[in-house]
């Protein structure tokens, strides 16, 4: 520890490279989350309809993404898309696609759960005053479901951000991949540098996820207090 390994962080452009890697990670997560949430909300609403076939197909879709680990999903799309469908996509796009589909699957279940837990009299009152199905969802069910589902959605977002650490497996230049390169390049000069590099990556992930999960926890607590207060 005499030549403190922490200096490896400030050698050359190492620090900015790590931050840029984190930015790549963050960008992929953000795009996948936005697309996934939109698709997920639509699928979640569809899953509350009474069409049996539609519900079955969407259920299979959800279960597939639930059962198969994300690492495996990434490899499936990374290897199968170019080979079988002749669709060549860079790793970043494959990652966005996989994460978006995964978020959509999980989100559809969150939305469905929230929609069916809106009290039945709300739906019936809406129908009784002659709302169309669109109006019923737009003005009665969805607004009430949002407050129910918000904590679960935020938790899903923190999970997606954590899962982006797997991007290096399909050779995306994310923060972990860059960290690994820096470690390999500086191993001779800074034997303990590895501790600081991975320590920084650890901290970066924590700094993004902690505020989000804190927010989710607070919302959840507030909701429980309100529910108990009634």
């Amino acid at each position: 520890m005499a030549h403190s390994g922490i200096n490896v962080l400030f050698e050359g452009t190492n620090f900015t490279r790590l931050l840029l890697g984190m930015w790549t990670t963050f960008k992929i997560a953000a795009i996948a989350i936005v697309i996934g949430l939109i698709i997920g909300i639509i699928l979640g609403i569809l899953r509350t309809f009474h069409n049996k076939l539609l519900r079955f197909v969407l259920r299979i879709y959800l279960e597939f993404f639930r059962i198969v680990p994300t690492v495996v999903l990434l490899f499936l799309f990374y290897y199968i898309l170019p080979r079988q469908l002749n669709l060549h996509m860079p790793g970043t796009q494959v990652a966005m696609l996989v994460f978006a589909l995964w978020v959509a699957a999980e989100m559809s279940d969150i939305v469905r759960g929230a929609l069916i837990s809106v009290p039945i009299h709300q739906r019936e009152s809406g129908l009784a005053i002659g709302l169309t199905r669109y109006q019923l969802y737009r003005y009665v069910l969805v607004p009430q479901a949002v407050s129910l589902e918000l904590p679960a959605t935020i938790n899903l977002i923190t999970r997606v951000i954590k899962t982006t650490s797997l991007l290096m497996l399909i050779s995306v230049m994310d923060v972990v991949n860059i960290g690994q390169q820096i470690v390999e390049a500086n191993n001779q000069k800074y034997p303990t540098g590895v501790f600081w590099i991975y320590g920084l990556i650890f901290l970066l992930y924590f700094l993004i996820d902690y505020p989000l999960s804190w927010w989710a926890g607070r919302l959840e607590k507030k909701r429980l207090e309100q529910a108990n207060g009634e």
Partner: peptide
Amino acid sequence: IEISKNTPLLVQLFFLYYAFPAM
């Protein structure tokens, strides 16, 4: 609990497997 649930397993493993030997 906060550290454990707000960091990815992959980074935790890298820390254990690569950074601990340096220590």
